[in-house]
């Protein structure tokens, strides 16, 4: 029975072996791994620049992934790990830029654009709402004079050849 059991365990473990070699960087504890991944997704890979270190295959990204996991398994908080990387690589490493005076415009742009758009719509609607005044008698006369008889007659609905 013991032999059967151990055989079963071995058989079950076999398909896991290559997979675990591929993800040697991953933490065994799924909660810690999820936390590490969450941190890693907020850190820019500085080699490829538009990927997070979780998505990148660059050497440096792998090293940073390892550091993040080391610190997480040591019990460091989200902020502590972020600070560690930020101290070394500066704001650029953060995929979500910090909110401060120098980045105010960056963060405010969507709001400003939205407000600008709403303002433009409001202005346009208000302009359109102004009723077009009736033509005065003098204007009617001038219009008829300019358009000539053919067109002024047309306005009465009698097409001419």
């Amino acid at each position: 029975m013991a032999r059967m059991l151990s055989l079963l365990v071995l058989l079950l473990a076999a398909p896991l072996a290559p997979a675990s070699a591929q993800i040697a960087d991953r933490l065994a504890d799924p909660v810690a791994e999820a936390r590490a991944r969450e941190i890693g997704r907020e850190l820019r890979c500085l080699v490829c620049q538009n990927q997070s270190i979780e998505d990148s295959e660059a050497d440096l990204a792998r090293d940073l992934r390892r550091i993040v996991r080391e610190q997480v398994s040591r019990g460091a908080s989200h902020d502590e790990v972020m600070r560690f990387v930020h101290d070394r690589y500066g704001d650029f490493v953060l995929l979500r830029p910090p909110f401060r005076l120098s980045t105010l415009l960056l963060w405010a742009t969507p709001v400003l654009a939205l407000l600008g758009g709403l303002f433009a719509i409001w202005r346009l609607r208000r302009r359109r709402a102004v009723p077009v005044g009736e033509l005065t008698e003098a204007e009617r006369a001038r219009l008829a004079e300019r358009l000539g008889p053919s067109l002024s007659d047309k306005s009465q609905g009698e097409p001419r050849t």
Binding site: L46, V47, L60, D63, I67, R88, Y89, G90
Partner: peptide, 13 residues
């Protein structure tokens, strides 16, 4: 060799 010192310096390549 491990590249840890480089990371402490903020080296990215």
């Amino acid at each position: 060799f491990p590249g840890r010192t480089a990371i402490d310096w903020g080296v990215y390549g």
